Simulated scan of single mutants.
Amino acid sequence: MRAATALGLLAGAAADAVFADPRRGHPVALFGRAAAALERRLYADSKARGAAHAALCAGGAALLGAAAQALTRDRPWARAAVTAAATWAVLGGTSLGREGAYLAAALERKDIAAARARLPHLCGRDPGRLDEPELARATVESVAENTSDAVVAPLVWGAIAGVPGLLGYRAINTLDAMVGHRSPRYANFGWAAARLDDAANLLPARLTAALAVLAAPVAGGSPRRALAVLRRDGHRHPSPNAGRCEAAFAGALGVRLGGANDYGGRIEHRPHLGDGERPGAADIRRAVRLARVVGLAATALAALAAARPRLARATRPA
């Protein structure tokens, strides 16, 4: 069955490359609506209520994956098909690259209004006052972070735990986007979702950073410089995971990331990562190219780990 899981991961990644995300009826969107409905019933300004919400949502998704895996226990082709479908549903690499390319094209033609209107597809920052370099910075940072969240991490958890890992991880990451941010409403209720997402991304974020360092030449960068920036700046970000990805991309691209981020009037000051100028439209295109190579490498590694029992066991948390 390990070979079936590996084949499913490869087929799902290929489906994402060809078809990207479905425009209607996306399983992640359906999960989001279910999680929001449960939130309306459970919400209280309480960490305990938030933990219950996170456990029910993420646990339910993982149990659904476990049921699908149990039903295909003795049918390798069915297991491969179920794994492929789940992988396609949870990956977002192709859509991420397309969003980055759209932002780059808008900035190249100096259409700041179009870029501002599109940025919310990538991140939650208020784009209303962002100039071209800040729009480019937000895009590069989002591409870097989401290369881990939407590509590498699902593949890692698919290699470790199969379909339950794929669905469970995507549920955790979606919950973090929904309730894990720092706001008066979610400071307590979203605490468990945010911490769970941090834990789930510890390994994938560091793998993403390592692959970005190795792939730096495809973006015109140097692995040595990318590694130096990663080691110097990766830990300075308030997120234990996003900083590693962003620092590695900053080093590979030779740009400076970080600064003040406006989340609907809530200003967060992020430390500078990397050296050089703020990024521009051309740097977005280089970031997208780097993200694609990182995704391809992660796909190959995940399939190899899933197919080889020793590698699969070695990747399991102690």
Rank of each mutant, 00 (worst) to 15 (best):
L203V: 15
V151R: 01
A138S: 14
L155I: 14
I172E: 00
G93P: 02
A192R: 04
F189T: 09
A194Y: 00
N201R: 03
R125V: 10
Y102W: 15
L119D: 02
A153K: 03
G124L: 02
A215V: 10
W191H: 08
A150S: 14
L130T: 01
D197P: 07
L196W: 05
A216E: 03
R195V: 03
E145A: 06
T147I: 12
A159I: 13
R182E: 14
G100A: 13
R109C: 14
P154Q: 11
D198G: 09
L135F: 15
L119N: 05
A113D: 15
P204D: 12
A113Q: 12
A212G: 07
V213K: 04
P120C: 05
A219W: 06
R118L: 14
S142C: 08
V143H: 01
E108D: 14
S142H: 13
A192D: 01
G97Q: 04
G168R: 07
A101R: 15
V151W: 10
P204W: 02
P217S: 08
R185I: 01
L122V: 11
V156D: 00
Y186T: 11
E141K: 09
P133Y: 04
Y102P: 00
V143T: 07
P154K: 10
W191K: 10
V140T: 12
N201A: 11
L91V: 06
P133M: 12
D126P: 09
A115G: 15
L119A: 03
T94F: 13
G190A: 10
A153P: 01
L175G: 01
T147A: 12
D197R: 05
S142M: 11
A106T: 03
I112T: 14
E108F: 10
G92T: 05
N173V: 05
A209M: 06
V140D: 06
L155Y: 07
I160Y: 04
G128K: 07
A136D: 12
L107G: 11
D131Q: 15
E99M: 10
G92Y: 01
L155D: 06
A194H: 02
P127E: 09
L167M: 12
R129C: 08
A150G: 13
G100K: 08
Y102D: 13
V90R: 00
L167S: 02
I172C: 08
A205D: 01
T208K: 01
V140N: 05
A219K: 03
A161M: 13
A193G: 04
T174K: 03
V152K: 03
P164E: 15
D176G: 11
E134I: 01
A212F: 05
G168A: 09
A115M: 14
L103R: 03
L211H: 03
I172V: 11
L122A: 11
S183H: 11
T174R: 02
S95K: 10
N201S: 07
F189Q: 08
